[in-house]
Amino acid sequence: MTTSESTPQRFYWRGLPVPFIAPWSVERLPSYDVIETCGPDGSRGIGYADELPLDRRRGVLWMRRGVKRGAGTPDLASVHPLRQRQAMSHLLCQVCGKSTFDADYTRWGKRHLVIARDVSGRPIEEGELTGSPPVCRPCAVESVRACPHLRKGHVSALVERIEPWGVAGILYRPTAFYPLPAPPAYSLSKVAFTNPQIGWTLAARDLATLHGCTPIDLDELAA
């Protein structure tokens, strides 16, 4: 079992499927204090004043958020930090939350299906960086028909490997200890695990690189 639920419940909102990784209004952001810390090796970084072991993964501090999926109204334009991380770590379908190591994965030669919004038609490229977990075939077909953003344009590929790269999050300035401005084109800064600034990053998304990419037509794949 890859998550706390062997078969996650499906939720719909106004006739549209609510992605597993979408946050709900009751899942509020708790208040917390971010402080400067010093690790066992003497490295400086950030932490919570009341930090718990579950607040970190791979040594990186993660943004806290309430967990009560299905309660209230969904925010379809946002991402729940914990569920996105679960989906990326265990390669769960970002829509239904089930494992993508399924019969289609085997039939496709042990490859995962990845979809990206794109109106230009540029194919998913080798080594491409993404924060979007894979999608199972039934959810992919349903999503491109139901999601207004995907209907405007999307590309898809079968991917052999999805490898951890880093995180997207809020980057703090070590010298003055306040958040750095994110790059203009993004709401969050992208920081690799190998970057020394990773210790000063409050993570909100897991990021990975895609390898062994074969662009495909989703309609043909579904048929």
Rank of each mutant, 00 (worst) to 15 (best):
G72T: 08
P148N: 11
H90V: 08
L129Q: 09
S78I: 06
P138T: 10
P148G: 05
K152Q: 15
D118Y: 03
K152N: 05
T106Q: 15
A103M: 10
V95A: 11
R122L: 15
V114I: 14
V67N: 08
P74E: 05
G66I: 08
A71I: 10
R65L: 11
R83Q: 05
R83C: 08
A87G: 08
Q94L: 11
A103I: 13
G70P: 06
G127W: 09
V135D: 01
K110S: 12
H80E: 05
R65P: 01
K110M: 09
R122P: 04
P81Q: 02
S156Q: 07
G109Q: 02
H149Q: 09
G131I: 08
T106S: 14
S132K: 13
V79E: 11
T106F: 13
E128H: 04
R83N: 05
G72N: 10
V155Q: 04
S156A: 15
L91W: 00
E126R: 10
G109P: 02
P148Y: 08
K68Y: 14
S78R: 15
I162D: 02
R83M: 07
V135G: 03
V95S: 06
A87T: 11
A140C: 08
V67L: 09
A116M: 07
A157W: 01
P134C: 02
H80Y: 03
C147E: 13
H154N: 11
W108C: 04
L82A: 14
E160W: 00
G121Q: 11
T100R: 01
D75V: 09
D75H: 15
H149C: 07
A87D: 06
C147G: 01
G72W: 10
R137S: 07
F101Y: 13
E126K: 13
R145L: 15
R111H: 06
E160H: 09
D102S: 14
G72Y: 10
A116D: 08
P133C: 07
E142L: 15
G131L: 06
K98W: 04
R122I: 11
R151L: 03
R151T: 05
R85I: 00
T100F: 00
A77I: 03
R117I: 09
V119Q: 15
W108N: 08
I162C: 04
V159T: 03
R85P: 02
M88A: 08
D104E: 12
A157Q: 03
R117D: 10
K68I: 15
G127S: 09
K68L: 15
L150C: 08
S156M: 12
M88D: 02
T100N: 02
R122Y: 09
Q86I: 11
A103W: 13
K98E: 14
K152S: 08
E128C: 06
L150E: 07
L92Y: 01
D104S: 12
D102W: 09
G97W: 00
L113T: 03
K98D: 12
P148T: 05
F101K: 00
L113N: 04
D118N: 14
R111Q: 12
V79C: 06
D118F: 01
R85W: 10
S143C: 10
G121C: 07
A77D: 12
G109Y: 05
K68F: 15
C93D: 03
R145M: 06
P148V: 05
D118M: 07
K110Y: 12
V119E: 15
D104F: 07
E160Q: 13
S132G: 11
D104K: 08
G121L: 11
G109K: 02
R151W: 02
I124Q: 03
